[in-house]
Structure formats: structure tokens, C-alpha cells
Simulated assay, not measured.
Amino acid sequence: MRRTLASRCPTRSASSNHSRIVRVALFPNQDRATALRKMTLMPAQRLESYVPQMANKGRLRVGADADITVFDPATVIDNATFEAPTEPSGGIEHVIVSGTFVVRDAELIADALPGQAIHRD
């Protein structure tokens, strides 16, 4: 069994932080695009000068690494609690990593492990 960050570090934030941000960003005074950019593009840009592979992260474009999460903003929710810190988020319909589904129709595909570690040169 592959161990995830959530299984090694069982806290609510390790398991559902992004879902919580998306849910909070749904309020009328919040900008969802900015919240998504802060979780995707901005961390990649911040690390590019240290880790060149990050130049292909956080972007949807030809030649970039294809890590995509498809969610319904009306139903996304962070289900993790302090009692059950690894409970998966709801409202996440699909997750595609390097062109491979790891979540399809809201179901985890347990044997799908397409991601690769990024190392600083």
C-alpha cells in the first residue's frame, strides 16, 4: 500500500486543506480564481528558481504536466475531522495525474500511481 501524506501525517490540513479553501472561496466576497491560483500556479512559480521541473506545474498548456482536478463548487466539502483526519473530500469528481485517472466518478482508483517525485537538481 502506498502511503500518502495524510496517512503519515494525519491532520485535517494534510487531507482536506484544498477542499476547505475552495469551499470558503465560494462566498460572494471571495474570488475563486484567485484561490485556485494560490493553490496551483503561485506555489509552482515560487519554486521554479530552485526546482526547474516546477515550470511545468500549476498550468494547463501543451507540454505541461497534466494534473487536473474536476470538482463541483456547489458540493465540494472537506470531510476530514480531528477524529477521522484521512476522510476524503466530497464533491471531487475526477483527478487526473499525468494523463491517468486516480479518481474517476468520485471513486479512488487504488492501483493508479502515475505521479513522480520532483527532486532539486
Rank of each mutant, 00 (worst) to 15 (best):
M1E: 07
R3Q: 10
R3S: 08
T4K: 06
T4Q: 10
S7I: 05
S7V: 04
R8I: 00
R8N: 02
C9P: 03
P10Q: 02
R12G: 14
S15C: 13
S16C: 09
S16P: 11
N17P: 07
N17S: 13
H18K: 07
S19Y: 02
R20N: 01
R20S: 01
V22K: 07
R23C: 00
V24K: 00
V24H: 05
A25G: 09
L26D: 11
F27P: 02
N29P: 01
N29V: 12
Q30M: 13
D31Y: 09
D31R: 09
R32A: 07
R32L: 08
R32D: 03
A33V: 06
A33S: 11
T34R: 10
A35N: 10
L36Q: 11
L36E: 11
R37N: 13
R37M: 14
K38Y: 08
M39F: 06
M39H: 08
T40C: 06
L41E: 14
M42G: 03
P43R: 04
A44Y: 04
A44L: 00
Q45G: 00
R46P: 05
E48H: 02
S49F: 09
S49L: 03
Y50E: 06
P52F: 00
P52Q: 03
P52S: 09
M54D: 14
M54F: 15
A55G: 12
N56Q: 15
N56F: 13
K57H: 15
G58P: 15
G58Q: 12
R59Y: 01
L60S: 05
L60G: 04
V62C: 04
V62E: 08
D65P: 01
A66T: 08
I68L: 11
I68W: 08
V70Q: 00
V70G: 02
F71K: 03
F71Q: 06
D72I: 03
D72K: 04
P73N: 10
A74D: 07
A74Q: 03
T75P: 00
V76E: 02
I77G: 03
D78L: 04
D78P: 03
N79D: 13
N79L: 14
N79V: 13
A80Q: 10
T81F: 01
T81Q: 02
E83G: 06
A84Q: 09
A84T: 09
P85F: 05
P85I: 00
E87Q: 14
S89E: 11
G90D: 06
G90S: 10
G90C: 00
G91W: 05
E93V: 08
E93W: 10
I96Y: 12
V97E: 11
S98E: 11
G99P: 07
G99C: 13
F101Q: 11
F101A: 15
V102M: 13
V102Y: 13
V103C: 06
R104V: 00
D105K: 10
D105C: 04
D105V: 05
A106T: 07
L108S: 02
I109K: 12
I109G: 02
I109Y: 07
D111H: 08
D111P: 15
L113V: 00
L113K: 06
P114F: 13
G115K: 09
G115D: 01
A117E: 02
I118M: 06
I118W: 04
H119N: 11
H119S: 12
H119I: 10
R120W: 14
D121Q: 07
